[in-house]
Design a protein around this nucleic acid. Structure first.
Lengths: 344, 344
DNA sequence: CTGAAAGCGCTTACAG
DNA sequence: CTGAAAGCGCTTACAG
């Protein structure tokens, strides 16, 4: 870091650091001639401003934190991509934190680091929105004293800004589609009860059954952990039932894949032998025209919107986050491709 | 950022900033009693050190830059994940830059930003390794004056550290497997000629044909752009040939998918009607037991290794990058699942 | 239109 | 074992 400084430029150009700073930031009056000389020396000496020094003296960085549970999950990498595009437009830089679904440990460590870095704002998907340390967690986040935007998962009892998806509606629509196709025996591979999206998707499922007067049977409600294996195991068990379901609703992309894998192994065709409908798009299946109907979330858009909200908060309120909280709930889209059909 | 400072702590604890700094950094002698008092006041006043001030005074950050062409591509998100895991272990933080395959513009902008941020090191996959601004580009990278580790793509005439994959060997192995299965009419969906991996994969293909005395036919060599659509279109054309190939080797994951899609549309079975072998794993296909043979790269590992090399360079050479350059070329693994088989 | 000086919040020789 | 003081490289009132 033994670099050319503003002082070196000033010396060489026979002006003061103040003036150099003025042309650098394009504010205040500087005689055209002086400006030219300075600009030239800057180029000549290959000067690159030190953002750290600037941050310190301005008491402000242009860095935001982005914290996600797992970058290997296409959902999150797509969200980050969306964030990145908007951040770039606004000359905001991203410090990326992957918490590895590590519950609290990693999150706390990263949050501390981000606070030390004096970041400008934070976009975060908490690994869990319902841990026993909820109040400590809230304190931690609020203690950052910067604008925070949640993505996809909420924090209990908080009123942070956020971009969410109407999971109840989405899974209601999905389940309704199965019902309308003629199904009455519909099983759900539910998410873990500790997950709000998981719980909400289950609620939507129940709501649809209720509306159409279809009895809710506990045997048809099985809890997975959002991973492929649980979708696989659960499906295998569902098939073994005395009265197996005629349709399966899977609460996320990985469990849908697990379900399809199990059906493949059992040589059961979709939808001729059993119908399947999943939550979340699976890009590769689309490409291969493996027509699986899904409830689809606007992933990339969620990232973009989150970043737009954050930018607004940052600009409108350089000091405190006093403007009204912005919580957006997007409606997922039902995409029917045939796998929901009912064969008697 | 109007926060508690080291000075506030010093005042309250009736010591000097120097002493506070000592306990903060755990260096130099401090009387146990004094230490305790300071630690208490730190907790009491909820003090969080300012990493920016520290960076400025130490002339050193703990931030590295990570620059990839496209985070939506599972290959890169997996690489970043690998980097992230190792970075985290070493308390290095990541500023993420997605260049959006934008060739030079974005790269230059980000590189400038990273230089201003005085980052500690850089891991980068250049969007292209063969642009007409090669020498300017090289100057730019070298001008950073920090350790640089390349991932997957090289920069012409450079000797930066890097983690690469032996594309020639990989595609030689893949092609050889097709030959050994009995194929003689093997087509390749090649990558763009501007891409070194693309060119190398084509070379491996030719090398294998040569070795087994199979004539190289230009009609069987078709160039795509690494995207799904080109794999689709090329495959459709291959099928229309008077003497269509009995096997197709696709140079990357997206084109393999496009190829499979085209075969599906044409109602052509794999491998009964035509054999397919791709470069790069496609996770979803594995899950669904759609047994497509591939040449597989250790993606996550590439990220991990890149970060390990960088860490070493950073630690060994706080000032200058004088240690020998580390260039690792990993060998891809051939994973045969049956899609390469030959049916007479 | 320009500059001297203080300040941002740390670290680090140096002195005791 | 502890502190005063200078320095890291900028920005920003203030004065002229």
């Amino acid at each position: 870091m033994a670099n050319v400084t503003i002082k070196d430029i000033a010396n060489k150009a026979n002006v003061s650091s103040t003036t150099v700073s003025r042309v650098l930031n394009n504010n205040g009056y500087v005689k055209d001639e002086t400006r030219k000389i300075i600009l030239d020396t800057i180029k000549e000496m290959n000067y690159v401003p030190n953002a750290i020094a600037r941050s310190l003296s301005k008491c402000q960085t242009n860095i935001i934190g982005v914290m996600v549970p797992d970058l290997s999950n296409p959902f999150f990498s797509e969200v980050v991509k969306g964030i990145s595009v908007v951040a770039d437009k606004n000359d905001l830089n991203i410090i990326l934190c992957d918490t590895n679904e590590n519950l609290l440990d990693k999150e706390i460590k990263y949050l501390k680091m981000l606070k030390e870095q004096r970041i400008r704002g934070l976009i975060i998907t908490p690994t869990s929105e319902d841990n026993k340390y909820n109040s400590e967690y809230l304190t931690l986040l609020e203690g950052l004293g910067i604008p925070i935007v949640l993505v996809d998962r909420d924090v209990k009892h908080s009123s942070f800004d956020g971009v969410f998806v109407d999971n109840i509606k989405g899974s209601f629509d999905g389940t309704e589609a199965l019902i309308k196709a003629g199904h009455k025996k519909i099983a759900i591979i539910a998410g873990p009860t500790t997950s709000k999206p998981g719980r909400d998707r289950l609620r939507g499922y129940k709501k649809a059954l209720l509306k159409y007067n279809i009895p809710i049977k506990d045997e048809y409600i099985v809890f997975g952990d959002f991973k492929m294996e649980s979708g696989y195991d659960i499906t295998k068990n569902l098939l073994k039932m005395e009265v197996p379901p005629t349709a399966i609703f899977a609460s996320n992309n990985m469990m849908t894949l697990g379900c399809l894998k199990a059906l493949g192994h059992a040589n059961i065709r979709v939808p001729e032998d059993i119908a399947v409908l999943g939550f979340d798009e699976i890009e590769d299946l689309n490409i291969l025209d493996l027509n699986i109907s899904v409830v689809s979330r606007p992933t990339f858009k969620m990232g973009r919107i989150a970043m737009e909200i954050l930018r607004e908060k940052i600009e409108v309120n350089p000091t405190k986050n006093i403007s009204a909280s912005q919580r957006l709930t997007l409606t997922p889209k039902l995409v029917l491709k045939g796998s929901e059909r009912y064969f008697k």
